[in-house]
Design a protein around this nucleic acid. Structure first.
Lengths: 219, 219
DNA sequence: GCCTGTGAACTCGTTCACAGCC
DNA sequence: GGCTGTGAACGAGTTCACAGGC
């Protein structure tokens, strides 16, 4: 079994490609569960509404995983995608904001994947501190963020606070040397380029639906 | 105050433009809260990390809202964006899946915007049916979906079930004539083109972070 | 014959740069 | 002088189409 290319340059690969790799991984997981051992890019494309040339191109950035005339081994592909996405090790996650969304994610991200472990959920509301979430984790004091990040070797911070405190929390996460931040608050949070910041913006998605409901569907 | 173009063609406008309009609306909301009355595309761009030409182009699809030499009236722009996005009327939302995420969204989408109203949350688990969510809404029986959609004039369905039931729920939503579906389950759900289906994929976002944490940051 | 990997063609989206207007 | 609205230039991303290998 060949290994993934050592020399791919992260710079030259589109973020859209990375997002699709995650989708491909999900697809081969399903195929494996069905007992399918080999799959061609065409078959993958048909089954999951994708484009076969794009699948081949996306994969080819990272190595030659397929066999001409045959296709890809489902098992191998799953292995490669897991390795490429960095999912063969555990990522420790900390959530700030123990509201409904924060506590929900606390539980959700556990079943979402083996690779992400929520090691703390913080809040600054004294009434919430010390209380357990449905998942069984105790809410801790937001002022202990730096200390907790260091002690528990946290890499990823998740913001589920109201919008007006999101930027402050993000600044604290940057100061605590978290390497990546996932923001769920409906504001644009900013930080230095050394920290990877991504937002999941529910409001934008709902408003997009509203637009198309009002003006008719897209192409 | 001029009105928005009647004759823009939805087909010719990119989904990315629509998503940005939602961001612009959020930005002018903030400016209005600061008491700022007029803003140029350049100022908007600087303040919120956007591109001024893109702002002008995005807005120009829908009308001539600006004044040359001056800029845009914050109040007017807010009005136009609200109208364009179809946020000047209420959209009724139904959630299927009363787990942590479903109940969280039930509450969340209320404060997210005035324009979206969650009118029902359903589940098929008899232990959950009849129980109140933190927001005070009672969980109803998922088998009543069609009836509830009709009676309460629901437009948008939200899926927060586990992945294995998501497609079935989506099919039921299509059958019940919901016009748009927002899926939070980590699977690709499919439906006819007449129904707008969008997914918010937490797992993909986390795995993208994992990729960059493993291989270094993007450009 | 079939399917991958990939250069080339094309499509789509962004940015530039300036004419037109205040 | 300053800023919008927009064609034109550019760049990114997708799809085509085929050479190469099983």
């Amino acid at each position: 079994m060949p290994s993934i290319k050592r020399q791919f340059s992260v710079e030259s690969i589109s973020e859209l490609t990375i997002a699709r790799l995650s989708i491909y991984l999900r697809c081969v997981d399903q195929l494996e569960a069905l007992g399918i051992e080999t799959v061609s890019s065409q078959e993958l494309a048909q089954r999951f509404n994708l484009n076969s040339a794009q699948i081949r191109k996306d994969l080819a950035y990272f190595g030659e995983f397929g066999v001409r005339g045959v296709g890809y081994s489902v098992r191998e592909l799953r292995h490669y995608l897991t390795e490429i996405l960095g999912l063969n090790r555990e990522h420790r996650v900390l959530i700030v904001g123990a509201g409904n969304l924060g506590t929900a994610l606390c539980h959700y991200s556990r079943f979402a994947s083996e690779s992400f472990l929520v090691v703390a959920i913080l809040d600054s509301d004294p009434r919430k501190i010390g209380e357990p979430t449905p998942g069984g984790l105790l809410v801790e004091d937001a002022s202990r963020l730096g200390e907790i990040v260091r002690q528990r070797e946290v890499e990823i911070g998740v913001i589920t606070t109201p919008p007006d405190t999101a930027q402050r929390v993000c600044d604290q996460m940057v100061a605590a040397h978290l390497r990546a931040v996932l923001n769920f608050a409906p504001v644009q949070v900013k930080g230095p380029k050394s920290v990877l910041i991504r937002s999941v913006d529910l409001k934008v998605h709902l408003e997009e639906l509203s637009f198309y409901l009002t003006h008719g569907m897209p192409k």
